[in-house]
Amino acid sequence: MTPPSKPQSMTELTAEPKPRTLPLRRTTVDHSRVVDDLLDRPQKVVARDVNFFYGEHHALHDVSLSIPQNCVTALIGPSGCCKSTFLRCINRMNDMIEGTRLSGQILLDDVDIYRPRTDVVELRKRVGMVFQKSNPFPKSIYENVAYGPKVAGIRQRSQLDEIVEKCLRRAALWEEVADRLAASALQLSGGQQQRLCIARALATDPDVLLMDEPASALDPKSTARIEDLIFELKDSYTIVIVTHTMKQAARVSDQTAFFYEGRLVEVGATTDVFTKPRQRQTEDYITGRFG
């Protein structure tokens, strides 16, 4: 397998002491750009009175939440508050756990994804997901990214090459792996693996990207790269991210939803939630009194 192009040789990389592959955060991306029209935007995902059960355990209570298009929505809350459970309801990954049940509605572009006719496979092509722990397939870098398009029926090699390059570029990984696309994905570092998983999720051309604590297992430098990436991706995708660090939520998100014990306590523009929380529990949590 030969990469479609070779942008730079190894010598070039070593000759340049500080290549452009490691930009410092906040110098390249302007995180301060504020989205102030949250409510005016089309609402991509709308949850209405969602109740979720693991067998007898009532995990989510009456969650209603609107997720605006092309924004980053952060779900925060102490561990065990079921924010990940909610996230996994949006692409119906919870279906894989036996004995789970959901009542209420989750609308994607005004279509209820829990109605009986829903094709879960199509749904997951439109709602991509990045997991807490990077989970590349034990295959080559190329095969990892090309897998989504392949299972969607794209067989043409040139087309796949194009998608792989595009997605790796978008995930800011292309320059690091362009010359070793055939190498095993498991040889990449943790941060690289997670960006590969993002590239892989992008390859099915989703509308919505779900991220379940994507940076929790990474070092600060890799975390910063992922955060930059999220910021860049929100122009094209609607992103929902679960995070347990409030700083991360404040840095990357436009809207923040605070979950506590299976209930949605407060939701609003990130700046509002962090500067003037309306609920006592939210305030206690962001000021670090628990969690």
């Binding site: 994607l108 994804i113 006719r117 829903t118 094709d119 029926g153």
Partner: peptide, 8 residues
């Protein structure tokens, strides 16, 4: 895009 329901 392909709609969520139906599909191939």
């Amino acid at each position: 895009k392909p709609v969520v329901s139906g599909g191939p």
